[in-house]
């Protein structure tokens, strides 16, 4: 029988093998909490899981109306319907924003656990990250139907290709990015409740910052405009470089290549994907360490 030592942790002891073993030991708790989250969201609701579909669909309809009739967005390939172009991006983004919002407030809404029971705290922000995958899966199925519909009725608009094999990799980056940023936010939110407000703005900001309503090819134009405005040479290049580290850009463009294909989306945007993965991994690792360093005070500040 091994002794359990309880004392103040030093910063270099933030995540040991012991912690990992413990995390595995509590997998059943992770499972029941995920099950709870998935069930409870749509309990006593008429449409139930339908909401997972309705939310991104309604948004897509609004965007399609806005950006094809009111403010026309210049597309790279006019044979791709705006609806598909937009919905392919909205599905992963909706997952990201709902997972981030739920995860940020997760420690606060589960305060009663934190002050009354011990278990590896990392589980709490992880639960919404996994639970929201159910909604994501449902939305993906609807997306599949839409793609199939356009494939049948508008030949040439959809070119499914072998790049679809990379889809799981893109989803993994999406999950890692969502979890990484959520670790930072949830650990901060329990002490500074302002984060709950900030995260709503941030999600909205990211919605327009990511190439969801506008095609990624417009980035060059945008960055050149910024350079003109600032007036320093090289700003455009630097801006593009920094932007490439925005994981949602790689994920969304990747989704389009996988699921739409055709002339405009013929090859995987590897530089975006690689830089996005680096950023996501960095956020995840630093997030775990930050979370663990704050963990010991959760019960005291909650």
């Amino acid at each position: 029988m091994n002794d359990l030592k309880i004392k103040k942790r030093h910063s270099w002891q933030l995540f040991s093998k012991q912690d990992f073993i413990e995390l595995i030991k509590f997998r059943d708790l992770l499972y029941t909490l995920i099950k709870r989250d998935v069930y409870v969201v749509y309990k006593q609701s008429v449409v139930g899981f339908g909401w997972a579909v309705i939310k991104p669909l309604v948004q897509m309809v609004i965007f399609t109306f806005l950006f094809t009739y009111i403010a026309k967005v210049q597309m790279d390939d006019d044979s791709v319907p705006y609806m598909i172009f937009n919905f392919v991006a909205l599905v992963p983004f909706t997952y990201f924003s709902s997972a981030l919002t739920a995860s940020t407030s997760s420690l606060i809404s589960n305060e009663s656990f934190i002050t009354k029971v011990y278990f590896p705290r990392l589980i709490i922000p992880l639960v919404p990250i996994i639970a929201k995958l159910v909604d994501f899966g449902i939305a993906m199925i609807v997306l599949g139907f839409m793609i199939f519909y356009y494939y049948q009725t508008q030949p040439g608009s959809i070119n499914i290709n072998e790049n679809i094999l990379f889809l799981p990799l893109l989803i993994l980056i999406l999950i890692v990015f969502s979890f990484g940023i959520s670790l930072w936010f949830s650990a901060l939110a329990i002490q500074y409740r302002d984060l709950n407000q900030i995260v709503t703005f941030l999600a909205q900001f990211m919605m327009y910052a990511a190439p969801i309503v506008w095609p990624f090819s417009r980035l060059k134009e945008i960055s050149q405009n910024i350079e003109l405005w600032i007036g320093i040479e090289g700003t455009a290049k630097a801006f593009e470089k920094i932007y490439s580290f925005f994981p949602l850009a790689g994920v969304i463009e990747g989704f389009r290549v996988c699921l739409i294909g055709g002339a405009a989306y013929s090859s995987m945007p590897w530089d975006l994907i690689i830089n996005g993965s680096i950023m996501s991994l960095f956020l995840l690792i630093s997030g775990v360490y930050f979370f663990r360093s704050k963990e010991s005070i959760f019960a005291d500040v909650a």
């Binding site: 103040k8 019960a299 005291d300």
Partner: peptide
């Protein structure tokens, strides 16, 4: 649930 400021428990 919370860490001690000083001291140790085994």
């Amino acid at each position: 649930i919370t860490e001690p400021t000083t001291g140790e428990i085994s």
